[in-house]
Amino acid sequence: MPPLRPWLSHDKRRCAAWLGALFVVSGLSALPPAPPADMVLIPAGNHTPLLRAQKDPAQVPVAAFYLDVQPVTNADFLQFVLTHPRWQRSQVSQLFADQSYLEHWAGNTDLGPHAPPGAPVVRISWFAARAYARWQGKRLPTIAEWELAASAGYDGPEGKNDATLHRDLYQWLARPTPAILPDAAMARLNFYGVRGLLGLVWEWVDDFNSAMVTGESRADTGLDRSLYCGSGSVGAKDTGDYAAFMRLALRSSLRASNTTSSLGFRCARDLSP
């Protein structure tokens, strides 16, 4: 019995569910419940961290989880600030969001011409993204979860072998962020049924601040036991994946209150809430 895969059609899924039910009855295996609306199941897998200490395993196991199909849009976030005024532009504490928070919106609760409803919301701080996720009964994905979901190609689970994906990704990296972002729903689905992880906007992750790097290149080349305590404080081993390094550099340079014109987020959820 192969694991139930989220990209199966509904008919196939129903069929698989029946099969699964038989297994449950016979006590052999249990299927996860159907994904919540607008989320997909990312099956358990392994994440290969870019930075690791010598005694760290090369791969980190990631449990199956649910991930939003697309990044949170302006329309989505508007619903949040309408009911949570403390996260409106003029109300938010500067401790939790910097000066450019939602500055492309026309007003506190007015999207305006620079923030189409269907475009990913950007100029969002980590604190704001977490607050939204909590409101939804969700959370931000971890680096390992996000990278696992993004490691898939368009047609298979191994994105590194997907030439089309690479072409799209590096074209995106080479372009400046457009003043008005495209509709999130237009982004191409990857193998897991997720849109826009690569090539739309950068995305916050819950543990963006878990890398024991200083951002100062000389200090990062070796173990700096003064700034950091623990085995995590070492340099990178594998410099092959340029885009992944860009993400690492971005995450390492961010403070939780920072907001930028190309940084948005999406939510995740555990299988059992």
Partner: peptide
């Protein structure tokens, strides 16, 4: 700051002070 520089290039309009 290497990482910050990279990120600044990537984001190109990000983190405006005011």
């Amino acid at each position: 700051n290497c990482a910050l520089l990279l990120a600044t290039i990537v984001l190109n309009q990000g983190m405006r002070a005011g």
